[in-house]
C-alpha cells in the first residue's frame, strides 16, 4: 500500500536523514520504528508525560503529538544527540552525580527538556525549573534529585 507512505527528509542530531514513513506515523513512531532511535520513549502517546520529548527547530515538542509528515526539513535533536562522542554533556553528568534517575525511562525527556531550559535561561530559580519540567512526569524520584541536577548543570551550588 504505497499510497499510505511518504518520504520525509530532515536533520536528526546533525545528520541528514531520509526515511519512508506511514502517513499515520507520529514523529515518535518514525524515530523509534523507522530510524531506530529508541531513546525517546512512549509513556502515554497523548502528550501528558513528556517521556518522548525532543527538540524540534529549537522548541521542545512531545514527539507523540507531531506527525512524521510535519518534519520535512526540520532540525530535530534527541537524547542520542546530547553527548559528544564519549563526552557526556554537563547535564548528563549532573544527572548521574545527583542520582537523578532510578528506572531511567523518563530521563531522556528530562534531559532534552532541561537542556532547552538552560539554553533559554542559564540561571533558573528552583521554581522556574519546576515550572519548566512540570510537563515531564517522573514516578520514581519525587523530583528532588532531578531539580538538583539541573541546578548543578547551571553551575549553582547544590545542597
Amino acid at each position: 500500500m504505497a499510497s499510505e507512505h511518504i518520504v520525509v527528509s530532515c536533520t536528526i542530531n546533525g545528520e541528514q536523514q531520509v526515511f519512508l514513513a506511514n502517513q499515520r506515523d507520529s514523529l515518535l513512531e518514525a524515530l523509534r520504528d523507522r530510524i531506530g532511535l529508541t531513546g525517546a520513549k512512549e509513556g502515554c502517546n497523548n502528550g501528558n508525560c513528556g517521556a518522548c520529548c525532543v527538540n524540534m527547530d529549537g522548541r521542545i515538542v512531545n514527539s507523540c503529538l507531531v506527525m512524521a509528515a510535519e518534519c520535512e526539513g526540520a532540525e530535530i535533536r534527541t537524547v542520542e544527540g546530547l553527548a559528544s562522542g564519549d563526552q557526556l554533556s554537563p547535564l548528563q553528568n549532573a544527572f548521574l552525580e545527583q542520582a537523578a534517575l532510578q528506572c531511567g525511562i523518563c530521563t531522556p525527556g528530562f534531559l532534552v527538556a532541561a537542556e532547552a531550559l538552560l539554553e533559554q535561561n542559564p540561571d533558573p530559580t528552583e521554581h522556574e525549573i519546576r515550572y519548566w519540567l512540570a510537563g515531564n512526569l517522573c514516578r520514581c524520584t519525587g523530583y528532588d534529585q532531578n531539580i538538583k541536577a539541573v541546578q548543578q548543570a547551571a553551575g549553582q551550588s547544590v545542597i
Partner: peptide
C-alpha cells in the same frame, strides 16, 4: 548502568 540511561542507549522492552 548510568551512562546507558542518560544517553538513550539502555534497551527497555519496547525498544
Amino acid at each position: 548502568d548510568g551512562v546507558d540511561k542518560v544517553t538513550g542507549a539502555a534497551q527497555y522492552g519496547a525498544d
